[in-house]
């Protein structure tokens, strides 16, 4: 086990971080609910980073690292599904993942492929305007409601479907870890600068302890997501997402609490992390579904065993 980058990972992530450099702040004048960057999306496609799992010496872990790092930016971009599923299954990027028909789906307005995960089957196809109704809400992802399966939807094989189910969870967990790191990092910075009672807010222990707890949760989320990616394992994927979906309930609320009224404005970038996290909180059935899945894998039901 090694918690530091290897030399190759270091080179990879340095290159990747430098691609992200221009997107570390919201675009000037950006005061919308969503800060999706088509430019970053295009650069990702052109750069070859999305094919990382096929590169010799690299794999799903590196895709998870990049997912986490990209999510740490206030600007949103679709990376997890493209890098973790798209490359392995030959799907065109960006890839949107839908947990059923009739639901809001992240990145669907910009996706070239939609993978639909349902109880008995997983399908993939090309979304088009008549089945993807864009919605405007306060969420910080580009979102559309998927009204039907694409006409060219093909059912994935059993093995492909299992890969999708497993890796979709890992992707969400890694993305959540990066978003939480962004939100907590921004909040820590804020409480160091914002002064009340003649001193920085961050001096107060009531705030320190909750942020220290949040920092711990974020770190554990990151390691659990990376370990799940390293193992490419269904149980670890569910554990990682369960932990993340549990953690984000506290993290989101703490970050908003300590940012005061300022944290509710669109000018203040906090929502660009937290209002993506709020979407992820219920993704893949939410923590209830993840907990059920963890329990089923650890302690199979008698009639299933």
């Amino acid at each position: 086990m090694d918690f530091d980058y290897s030399d190759d990972q270091h080179l990879l992530m340095t290159a990747f971080e430098s691609l992200l450099e221009r997107f570390r702040a919201p675009p000037p004048g950006q005061h919308g609910y969503v800060a999706y960057s088509g430019e970053l999306q295009a650069e990702l496609a052109a750069s070859g980073f999305l094919e990382i799992t096929g590169q010799p010496g690299f794999g799903l872990l590196e895709a998870a690292m990049m997912t986490e790092a990209a999510a740490h930016c206030p600007v949103s971009v679709e990376l997890a599904a493209s890098a973790m599923l798209g490359a392995a299954l030959g799907l065109a990027a960006p890839v949107a993942v839908a947990w059923g028909v009739g639901r809001p789906v992240r990145f669907l307005p910009v996706a070239r492929t939609v993978v639909v995960i349902e109880d008995g089957r997983v399908t993939a196809g090309t979304p088009c305007a008549d089945i993807a109704r864009p919605v405007t809400g306060v969420a910080a992802y580009p979102i559309a409601v998927l009204s039907a399966l694409p006409h060219d939807a093909r059912q994935l094989s059993g093995t492909e479907a299992a890969t999708v189910r497993r890796r979709a969870l890992i992707g969400v967990a890694a993305e959540a870890a990066g978003l939480m790191r962004g939100a907590v990092g921004h909040t820590v910075q804020y409480v160091r600068e914002r002064r009340q009672f003649g001193q920085p807010l961050g001096n107060f222990q009531a705030i320190q302890h909750r942020l220290a707890e949040d920092a711990q949760l974020v770190r554990a989320c990151r390691w659990l997501a990376f370990r799940a990616a390293y193992a490419d394992d269904a149980k670890e994927a569910a554990v990682a997402l369960l932990y993340a979906q549990e953690a984000m309930r506290k993290v989101i609320n703490d970050c908003h609490q300590f940012s005061g009224a300022m944290g509710l404005t669109l000018e203040f970038p906090l929502h660009l992390w937290t209002y993506r996290l709020k979407v992820l909180q219920g993704e893949a059935g939410g923590r209830g579904a993840q907990a059920g899945s963890v329990a089923d894998q650890l302690w199979p039901l008698a009639d299933a065993a």
């Binding site: 370990r227 554990v239 907990a291 059920g292 963890v294 329990a295 650890l298």
Partner: peptide
């Protein structure tokens, strides 16, 4: 089902703690 959720939740907490401990060992 409710106990299963609680057990899974406790399990995930232990696994999170394990990874934090492993980082300290690293």
């Amino acid at each position: 089902p409710v106990a299963r959720q609680a057990a899974a939740d406790a399990y995930a907490s232990c696994e999170g703690a394990r990874m934090m401990a492993y980082e300290a060992v690293d």
